[in-house]
Design a protein around this nucleic acid. Structure first.
Lengths: 160, 160
DNA sequence: CCTTGACCCTCCCATGGTGGGAAGCCCCAT
DNA sequence: ATGGGGCTTCCCACCATGGGAGGGTCAAGG
């Protein structure tokens, strides 16, 4: 089977097939005399496994672990479960983070008239924690991206 | 104000300050004779605006729009609201996607004994749509990443 | 005046997965 | 033998961010 056929049969793009090989997620494919990669049915099964795992949002690193476990008859299901559970925890964290953003923004949008006038609580909030700061505090999770070095400076606001 | 002070006062890293300038999110900063960037209080306000917008997950492109509207006295709040609403829609889509992943994976993990034995429904599912395919169909949203070109090949499974 | 240390500059690289595309070789059918 | 489609490698782009090298600058203290 050529790379194109393996791609069509697995739902993984040829580009990704080469990439997965390069990063060691797949073993190096055998080659024809002309240098074409050759795949077996077994390879396609592995690829489908990988694709399903990607569909569940698993990182390549974790998929490497899972493929290893999958091919290990001596594995313990506890190891597999742990990998899955870790990913669930990360998904939960991400969902929480996005939900907090969503809720804050939705509230602001709800409070915005959305008419031709310039007055807008969304901008007001972005400008300087507009509506009661404790309100923002409850909704917006303090995502650990900004290192919170924000120092003094009186909020004089308004850039125009 | 130097870049370090502007960074500390706004919570945006110096690295990002330079980057935002490069991509045109910020106007080119004035320079001292030695080439040091100089920032004003007004710049810091803009930076805080940007940082808050990033905290809400807005993309740089959308922040460019918002900053433009913010500085436009003639803006209509409808324009601002539209940008916010679009972002809320994207957040909702992402949350739905992640939640579907999470639920599927959680179900699989729940069904997994997690003991020393190798038998594991998680691997079984990844292997080939294991437990009743319509079940997977209901939970896992068909995220539009794989182009669904998955063709034939009988699922013989098991790569070991 | 000179050193020291903190700060700033530009430029390059890496991340994580994925797609796009160019230049060039190969295979099959007409 | 020619054309078209498939394969190869290599480079670039995304998005937003951090790290670091190599070199200039500034302020304080000796």
């Amino acid at each position: 089977m050529n790379i194109g056929q393996a791609s069509a049969a697995s739902g993984v793009s040829a580009k990704m097939l080469r990439y997965y090989e390069e990063i060691g997620l797949l073993p190096k494919a055998a080659r024809t005399g002309a240098g074409y990669r050759v795949y077996s049915t077994k390879d396609v099964n592995t690829l489908r496994f990988i694709r399903r795992a990607r569909d569940l949002g698993l990182s390549i690193e974790r998929i490497k672990l899972l493929v290893g476990l999958w091919q290990d008859r001596e594995r313990s299901s506890a190891d597999v479960k742990r990998v899955a559970t870790e990913h669930v925890a990360e998904l939960d964290a991400k969902i929480l983070e996005l939900t907090a953003m969503r809720d804050t923004l939705q509230e602001l949008a709800d409070a915005c008239h959305g008419d031709h006038r310039p007055d807008c609580p969304i901008l007001h909030d972005l400008e300087g924690g507009g509506r009661s700061p404790e309100h923002r505090g409850t909704v917006t999770k303090d995502v650990p991206r900004g290192k919170g070095a924000a120092a003094g400076l009186p909020a004089e606001c308004h850039a125009d």
